[in-house]
Design a protein around this nucleic acid. Structure first.
Lengths: 227, 227
DNA sequence: ACAAAAATTTAGATTAGTCTAAAATATTAT
DNA sequence: ATAATATTTTAGACTAATCTAAATTTTTGT
């Protein structure tokens, strides 16, 4: 029965949730970049969201914001919508994995609880999205998931691709061509400290591939225990 | 490649399209009632839409508006979205016919051309909606359809239910219980001029049913040739 | 430690969509 | 035909979300 928020407010809360994975508190500038609005607009909005009753954000002037429990609930609801919709668009309507994001980004704000439940049922209550992301369950609890990035792995380490960023169609088509989809196992061969390039070998593929930091920073991995 | 309009503008154009079926020009007050906004707001909006380039409306002060070809295109696009979505929600997600309208009313504004095409394909390019309404084709041409209402039929006439209003769940559940779904054949038994009640008999049903004007005015019919 | 740079906030303005109240115009009824 | 009624338009104001430019605060570098 959660109150209804504007698409804009939902977008702010979603973005703050995602940025919270990196830092405890999220800065005005980070939010402005992520939403492509001016920092002044962000200051305005986060003050409103912090002064609402109930507050969506915990705000300390000049020190950024953190989601309250209420704010996180809204963010997770939208994230659940987004990830269920991406899967739905792929499974039921035949969208390719690079096309689903933009459509889901608009639909996520308008579907009802009823729609959400029916889609979840049709898809068999999935726990992972099209790009490997964990899907919050119907009680808005986020399943456990690895928090490591390919970017931070070093030679000799092995792992499996867990999930990848979903918002850049070109990036997704590139990954697919390289065979780097969620579930893919690989081993790191080489690391180049100057440009942060990684050379990796995908299990079952002859050719090794070299990936720049702009790619490896967008790929979350589960690192296999050593030895 | 049609430009993007706000949900609000799309709603105005859709409502004006529907009201145009009754009268050539549509009045400010009619639109205000249909959208549940004040007449002053309507005046404001229709002046904007008439002064845009290209104009969506043909507006004569104190004499109401008519859609331009451009405006009609937008209205038909939204109507196509709405009717395809209603069918989709029923066929693919299992919504009942009284639940689809509210959901479609929000989704119709945000789905892409791509979504529209895929849904149409999944449904086999339907020409009629869940409630019998004609669906504009992909070139936004409205199929021929009868324009008579059950309300205007008289004893001895026979006909078939063509389509029914989709926006009131209670009304739709009532119709379903009476067996009055699109395709149902019936004969008018009696007309009561004082309250405009009609007594009709559905083909294959023993019991006759009496319907008030608030029902019969919401049921479009194809009247069978006499004799 | 303090000046320079970076980030954030404030101030003031804009646009879309809405409202109420008052004024203007049309319609209807006698 | 004209007064009464109904409808429409204008005027002025509000809210949400945004902007730019200026002011303030924090961080960084030497």
């Amino acid at each position: 029965m959660s109150r209804r928020f504007s698409d804009t407010v939902e977008d702010y809360l979603k973005v703050i949730y995602k940025l919270s994975a990196e830092n405890e508190r999220v800065g005005t500038g980070q939010i402005a970049d992520a939403l492509a609005v001016s920092p002044a607009s962000v200051t305005d909005m986060i003050q409103r969201l912090a002064n609402e009753e109930p507050a969506m954000l915990d705000y300390i002037k000049h020190q950024g914001v953190a989601l309250t429990d209420e704010g996180q609930k809204v963010a997770l609801e939208i994230l659940r919508h987004h990830r269920l919709l991406e899967l739905f668009l792929h499974e039921i309507l035949g969208y390719s994995w690079d096309q689903v994001h933009a459509e889901a980004d608009r639909l996520e704000h308008v579907i009802s609880e009823n729609f959400e439940e029916r889609v979840a049922a049709v898809l068999g209550d999935p726990q992972r999205g099209l790009h490997g992301e964990p899907i919050p369950n119907r009680n808005l609890e986020m399943p456990d998931h690895p928090s490591s990035y390919l970017h931070d792995m070093r030679p000799e380490q092995q792992g499996v691709v867990h999930s990848v960023s979903d918002d850049d169609p070109g990036f997704l088509r590139y990954l697919e061509k390289q065979g780097l989809v969620p579930g893919t196992e690989f081993r790191v061969i080489d690391f180049s400290p100057y440009d942060n390039n990684l050379r990796i070998q995908v299990v079952g593929q002859e050719e090794e591939i070299v990936l720049g930091a702009s790619v490896t920073a967008q790929v979350q991995v589960e690192i296999h225990d050593e030895g």
